[in-house]
Design a protein around this nucleic acid. Structure first.
Lengths: 146, 146
DNA sequence: TGTAACTGATACTATATTGATATCAATTAA
DNA sequence: TTAATTGATATCAATATAGTATCAGTTACA
């Protein structure tokens, strides 16, 4: 079970970069090189983020991408939703519907409780928070915090 | 983002059935019909659960499957691990390894915290708990608990 | 003792998702 | 004018998910 797909992972890292260079346009190429994200793949993600009003772009030479929203207003939950679809338990799509199967119904009830917990956590985790983490980590030489 | 795949969903429901008919062998056909799970697909899942020591089988006529472990000793977390692989953030597989990329490292750190929360929840949710939920719901006519 | 009801084992297929690449037109700074 | 850039799309490969088919072996029981 993978929590974040590459798309989300890449998108977050691209935003971290844009977030720490606010006010300037950063090209896809720069982000791609710096964050080691496949160039064309990244471009698709950036387009998607424009469509969702997270960033803006400027065409032509010296063009690129820039944050539109405040980093603190972009929760990772939103990025997961954009790139992986809304968190859902299984596929009883119509939430108010009566489940045909009782076991399934009971299971759903419990899992949806957990789903809420997860969503709350991903809502609290914003790009802004990550940028501050990143700044705090700068200069410190250590491995991944377990 | 789907939390449970069909495999896990089916496996849990099969276990709920075995768990509420403890001491008797229940055939794959019976489970399949009763829980509306594709027969051959279910058989594969049952084999997998035997390999993981969750259930036992008896071959031949009047054969079938029976719980081996106590329902309270089977957390949903384990089933997710068996059928969907261990919950992992992204794919920095070697946890002690130093991440090449600082942004990624910070991101990982935060996500792993959330991962723990999720795992704790799925650990607390056992087949035994679900069976009790199921018994409590029996006879009550209502839709899915939102 | 034959046979129908079972599991064990394995191979196969179809579809969806994920991850990635390629191409060409349009825009813009220098 | 041209090199650097985004916009828009089409295509592709790999992997995961969901499901089917087949045949051999075991067992209860008529």
């Amino acid at each position: 079970m993978k929590v974040l797909t590459k798309k989300t992972d890449y998108a977050i890292r691209a935003l971290l970069m844009l977030g720490s260079k606010r006010g300037e346009y950063v090209s896809a190429k720069t982000i791609s090189t710096d964050q080691d994200i496949p160039y064309q793949f990244l471009r698709g993600l950036l387009q998607e983020m424009i469509r969702h009003d997270l960033i803006v772009s400027k065409e032509g030479a010296q063009g690129g991408f820039m944050m539109k929203k405040e980093p603190d207003e972009i929760p990772v939950a939103q990025l997961i939703e954009v790139f992986q679809g809304k968190v859902q338990v299984s596929e009883c799509m119509f939430r108010k519907q009566i489940c045909a199967n009782r076991s399934r119904c009971v299971l759903r009830h419990e899992i949806m409780r957990i789903e809420q917990v997860v969503n709350q956590e991903f809502d609290k985790l914003t790009i802004g928070k990550l940028i501050r983490d990143l700044e705090a980590a700068n200069g410190v030489t250590q491995g991944c915090g377990e």
